[in-house]
Each structure stands twice: as structure tokens, then as C-alpha cells.
Amino acid sequence: MSLHGVGRTVAWLAILSLSSHATPSRAIQLDERLFGANEESYTVLRTAVDNEGSYYSSTTTTTLFERSIETDETIRETVVLKSRTIIDANYTGPEKAPVETVIQARGETASLTEMVERWPIQGVKLDPKLLEGFKVISGSIYFRQVFLTHPAGLVESEKQPNEEQPAPGWQVMDGRYAGGATILKVVRGDVTAKEGPTDGVWVALNPETAVQVNKLSLLPPTILSLGSAKDLAGAQEIVRNLKPIPEGPDSHLLEVAIWNFTKTNERGFHVVATASDAIIRNEKVAEFEQTRDARLTPVPTDSFTKWIAPDAK
């Protein structure tokens, strides 16, 4: 048999092998690109690829989503482009099979200039070490094991699983600080695999939650406590009974805050020295105790769940 004949035989065997396989399970893969943000909302371009349960056709839909910074709920969505790609399953030639792309829908969106004017903030990239503190468990986002939110965007994406295969877990891969909020890129699948994650969506933590994440990220393993109470009113009473902070270059070392803590058999509130590390490092414990008329006791922070301003209403 000639080499040309061998080549054609191999090609035919490949085609027969492909045709003998069962059709793939239907799956919809999602990926979102962050476009921009303002103080009220942020926008993403979502690309959804539906394999239609076939090796030879797929539908791709690109949608512009505007979501609330405060709630992460969708404010509006606009289909930018929807197209269907079809591969000629009957082609037997030596080259790649012909591919036809049919535009099924084309939406009307604002101009690029108008969109940039409306959502001008690109955000500041979060420190990778900060990202390591985030975990996604059962669709909820946690930081340092503290529950933050069950975001609408993540719940929405969970409505499109593979028909047969169980969905892999979610993890936080990227993040931006924008519009006063923290916006996280959450992906499903193995980010180290050659084919990459199966899905990726952006979700927002509102400004209040972003503040909590920042406070939690700055917590040392141990902090100096001025006392604890069973309720917030009791903790605020401890604060009111402290001597006032005198003016001076080191006045920031005398500031306090309240932290809610939750243990297995105990819940309550600690009043703590916010600059505990500096107080210990500069040997200012006795000075703090004398100036504010309080006793400092080191306590672990692994049970701390929420930072509260001492004058919170």
C-alpha cells in the first residue's frame, strides 16, 4: 500500500473512531471579564458556551451584566451577541472540516465611550496573600473562616451545571478593590489544570463587608484586651469608662475597638487596643494601662468574627 493510501486509511480510522463515541454530556461553560465599576454598580461581560451535547455544534452567548455593588444582584442584562457554530460532520476531506457561524442575535448597547464614562473604575488588584484568606463553601464566601456573604452572582451561576458530572468546587482566584467594594473573581474547577477552570464569575462584597475583610486581614494572632462583655452595650460601657485619650504624637497607640467573638460555648465582645503589636513592641503596656485606666490581657483572635467601631449605634 502506498504512503498516500496509509494516510487516507489513518484518516478514515480517526473519523470512524470519533463517530463511534457517544455524544458528550451537555455542558454550559461560563466566564466573565470585569469591565468597570462606579460607587453603585459594576459591569461584566459574560461569555456562555453551550456545547449542545454535540461534538459538531455549539452556541456562544455574550451578555453584559450590570450588578449592584451593595447587594451583587443583577440590575440589568443585555445580550451583546449570540452565535451558533456548526462543524460539517459529513466532511471527509484532508483539511479541517468546514465551520459555519450563524449570528442569532445582536443586541443594542451603549457606545464604548459611554460605558467607560459610566463605569470608569478599573480597581486596585488585591494582594495575593489576602486572596489566600478567602474560601468558598456551599456557595458562600468566607474569610479566615468568617462567613461574609452568599452572593447572588454565584447562586445564579450554579443554575447551569453539567448534566451528568458533579460540579467541582469554587475558589477565589482574583480580586479588585473598586467603588468602595471588593470584587472577587470566583472560579469553578482546577486552575492548575491544562484546560483551566470550567467556570468563572465576578461577585461583589459591599463596602461594609470590604471593611470587615480589611480588619480581619490585619488581626494579629494575639491582641491586647481591655475586657469583655456578653453584649455590645456592655462592651460600649467599658469604652465609656476609659480615661480619654490625651493629645500627643502617640495618641493613636491608645485607640480601642470592639470585636465580636464566637467560641463553641461562648459568645461576646472584646474591647481591644487596636495598636496592640506596636504597644508590645515599644514596651508601652504599662503606659497604656495608666493613661486609659485599664488592664491589658492578651487574648487569641481566632474566634473574632466582626469588627465594631467603639461608638457604633
Rank of each mutant, 00 (worst) to 15 (best):
K263Q: 13
V44C: 06
E70L: 13
P221A: 11
R33C: 05
P161T: 01
I75P: 05
R281H: 07
I121Y: 11
A312N: 06
M115C: 06
S225Y: 06
S17T: 15
E156L: 13
Y177G: 06
M115Y: 03
W202P: 00
P94Q: 15
G227N: 09
G93T: 07
D293H: 09
N241P: 00
P166T: 08
A37R: 04
N260Q: 15
A193H: 09
M1K: 06
P246H: 03
Y91N: 09
E289I: 01
V146R: 02
F304Q: 02
K159Y: 08
R292T: 00
V44Y: 01
K263E: 11
I280H: 00
V79S: 08
S140V: 00
K230F: 07
A312I: 03
A37S: 12
N282L: 13
T59S: 11
G93I: 10
S58P: 03
V256M: 09
N90I: 03
D50W: 05
F261Q: 04
T149C: 13
D250P: 01
T301Y: 09
T301C: 11
T61C: 06
E208G: 05
D174P: 05
E289T: 01
E39S: 07
Y55N: 05
S68I: 06
E114Y: 02
P151A: 03
T291K: 07
D311T: 10
L216F: 05
G139C: 05
A37T: 03
V239H: 08
D72L: 06
S41C: 11
W119L: 02
